[in-house]
Structures are given as structure tokens and as C-alpha cells.
């Protein structure tokens, strides 16, 4: 077993209204960033976990997303894993 860092991104599906994204878009426009066309606000979650390898870590993280980290009715998710040096801070 070795230690892995899972970087999970959860984001509202394109078909789902995103009031937070719309509010941030308005805010950016008000600040003069008129080039901004769209904003979607999601969530980033770091998970440290033990796994045999990257593939297992990824599979486990996907299970976590399906059961808790994301609501797949309204959100999609992406998982990236990288090895963690023993004792290193994330």
C-alpha cells in the first residue's frame, strides 16, 4: 500500500442552472472583466488515501464521488491522483 493524493473536482452539469456562477459572472462584469462569457462554480476536494496503485486509488475516489462527494443528478466530477511522499504535507 502507498499513499496517494486524490484531487477531486465537482462541478454543476451544463444542463443545471448555476446561481453561484451567474452571481460571480455579474460580479466580474461589474469589476470590468467584460470579456468573461461564462462562470461555473464547483468544488475542489483533496483526499489522501492508501491504495495499492494509482488505478485503485482512482477507482475508490470515483466510488466516493458516486456515494457522497458529488450529487450525480446535478453535478459531474473529475478525479486525478498523484503519489504522496511519506510524511509530506499536502
Amino acid at each position: 500500500m502507498s499513499l496517494w493524493l486524490g484531487r477531486v473536482t465537482v462541478i454543476p452539469k451544463p444542463s443545471v442552472n448555476d446561481p453561484q456562477g451567474l452571481a460571480v459572472l455579474d460580479g466580474l462584469h461589474a469589476l470590468g472583466f467584460s470579456e468573461v462569457e461564462q462562470v461555473r462554480v464547483g468544488r475542489h476536494i483533496d483526499v489522501r488515501l492508501d491504495a495499492e496503485g494509482a488505478e485503485e486509488a482512482e477507482a475508490r475516489l470515483c466510488q466516493m464521488c458516486e456515494t457522497l462527494l458529488a450529487n450525480t443528478l446535478i453535478e459531474s466530477y473529475e478525479v486525478q491522483v498523484q503519489p504522496v511522499q511519506e510524511g509530506a504535507a499536502v
Binding site: N17, D18, P19, A23, N71, L73
Partner: peptide, 16 residues
């Protein structure tokens, strides 16, 4: 809804 006992989901209110 989160428990899957009712259909759908509840999002942030419009204009948050």
C-alpha cells in the same frame, strides 16, 4: 432527495 427517497435536487436559490 439526497437519500434518493424523493426525485430531484435542491439547488442554490436564484440570485443566491
Amino acid at each position: 432527495t439526497e437519500a434518493g427517497l424523493l426525485p430531484g435536487a435542491l439547488l442554490r436559490n436564484q440570485y443566491i
